[in-house]
Amino acid sequence: MSDSSESGVPRPVRIIAWSVAGVGTLLVVGVIVVVLMFEHAVGQAPVKAADDARGLARDAVGDLRTESQDGVLTDDQITVAIAKANGVVKSVKRADSSIDVTARVEGNSGGVGGEITAALCFTYTIALPVQPTSKIDMRELPSCPQ
């Protein structure tokens, strides 16, 4: 029996050719998988950053409660509570039955494409009188006021 097939190509050459083809196929598939994973990671970064902002905004409710322990909630105390949540106070409106705070909170998501930041706005309505158990409603706004 000879080392050649009916095509006349020696068996060692066929083995090398198939090996090169197999390795090449694996490399192409590997590159495709890496590209798809990168696209997925980059596509998810804004979603994760927005989720981070929402989590920080929820944390601000607890920080507002902490700042109101003494029964008073000044603008400075509100600013401190929102700043702990990586936020900035946009407005504070005081009424007879509540304090309405509008704030911009930033969330971050790092990944292969670098760090992505999402800025979301929230309104916090704090029931009066201010006390540690005061009801605080948080609502996400569709956009941030100027």
Rank of each mutant, 00 (worst) to 15 (best):
L36T: 13
G113W: 07
K48H: 11
L73D: 06
V31M: 14
A49R: 04
N108P: 01
Q77K: 06
G24F: 10
G110W: 05
K90W: 02
A60I: 06
Y124H: 08
V61C: 01
V9W: 03
T79R: 09
G113R: 06
V72Y: 10
K93M: 07
F122K: 00
E6T: 15
D100L: 14
I136C: 01
L56N: 10
A17P: 03
D59S: 13
S91T: 15
M37V: 14
T102G: 00
V92R: 02
Y124Q: 05
A53N: 01
V13A: 13
I136W: 07
I16S: 09
A85V: 02
A45I: 01
S5Y: 10
D63L: 05
I136Y: 05
A85E: 03
D137E: 08
V92Y: 03
L26P: 01
V112Q: 11
R65L: 02
I116W: 04
P12C: 01
A53D: 04
D59M: 02
T102W: 05
L64Y: 02
D96H: 11
R65A: 07
R14E: 08
Q77A: 15
V72M: 13
A118W: 05
V20H: 05
E106A: 11
G114D: 04
A49K: 02
E140N: 03
K90S: 07
Q131D: 11
D96Y: 09
A49V: 04
P129T: 11
R54K: 00
K90M: 00
V35N: 11
I82R: 02
D59A: 10
I15W: 08
A95L: 12
V28I: 15
D96N: 15
Y124E: 08
A85H: 01
S91K: 09
T123E: 09
D51L: 07
P142K: 12
T123P: 07
Q44C: 04
W18D: 08
